[in-house]
Amino acid sequence: MQYTEAKQNFIQAWGTLGSSWGINKAMAQIHALLLISGEPLAAEEVMEELKMSRGNVNMNLRALLDWGIVEKVSRIGERKEFFVADKDVWELARQVSKERRRREIEPIIKVLEQVQGVEGTSKEVKEFKAMTKDLQDFSYKVDSVLEKFTKSDKNWFYKLLMKL
């Protein structure tokens, strides 16, 4: 397989994987390109390489910046903004976990805490409270694991994996 084909296959696969993270395909493809680029890229270079519109690239670069997995860098004498992805896979996994926790787990925990205050003694209310309490307990455990993971170092995590 030639480099160009391998690069395209990786970008496409990473784009598909991105939907599992809760991000769109274009955002993940841009991230993939930045991950494998040896130099920071300008938005125009991303547009050209991935055949995407300026608006799509700019919107998704902002989103990647918000996720904390891409950074802006400057070049002396250049007016353009350049972008680079952190190449440390461990840091990427931690940052994605941290963001997913903030965007997904914390909001559902808040809702589950609120609905526990439902009033009534009917069978439906009791079943509702029991189910949402189970979901709340499970969510707390998931949140705790994600918090430990995002604050951990590689050695702790690898030791944990080895025990499993």
Rank of each mutant, 00 (worst) to 15 (best):
G77P: 10
K87V: 03
P107L: 12
N24G: 13
R75A: 13
G38E: 15
Q114P: 02
K110Q: 10
F82N: 06
R79Y: 14
F83L: 04
E78W: 09
F138R: 06
E99Q: 14
D88Q: 05
K51R: 07
D88W: 05
D143E: 00
F128H: 02
E48L: 04
Y140D: 05
Q116A: 14
L61E: 03
V125Q: 03
E104M: 14
V46A: 14
L92P: 05
S74I: 09
S37P: 05
F82K: 11
D143I: 07
S144V: 00
L35F: 10
V142K: 06
E39G: 04
K25M: 09
S139C: 06
A93G: 09
E147M: 14
Q29E: 08
E48N: 13
V115R: 05
M47P: 04
G77Q: 09
S20M: 06
K126N: 14
D137K: 13
K98D: 02
R103S: 11
W90M: 04
G18H: 06
L92M: 12
M59K: 07
A63Y: 08
Y140T: 01
G68H: 05
K129L: 15
R102T: 15
R79E: 11
S20A: 15
K110I: 06
R103D: 01
E45W: 01
G55A: 14
Q95H: 00
R103C: 03
L50S: 02
S37I: 07
K148C: 02
A130R: 14
E45K: 12
V46I: 15
Q95N: 06
A85F: 09
S139K: 01
A43L: 12
A130Y: 03
E71G: 07
E91Y: 10
L146A: 04
K87R: 08
V46Q: 11
K123C: 00
F83Q: 02
V125E: 08
K141E: 15
V46K: 07
A130S: 07
L112G: 02
P40K: 09
I23R: 05
K87T: 02
F149I: 08
I105K: 11
K72S: 09
V84T: 02
Q114A: 14
E71I: 05
S53W: 07
E45D: 11
G55C: 08
G38N: 09
V96P: 01
E124W: 12
K151R: 12
W67Y: 10
E78F: 12
H31Y: 15
T16L: 15
I69Q: 05
K51V: 13
V111Y: 11
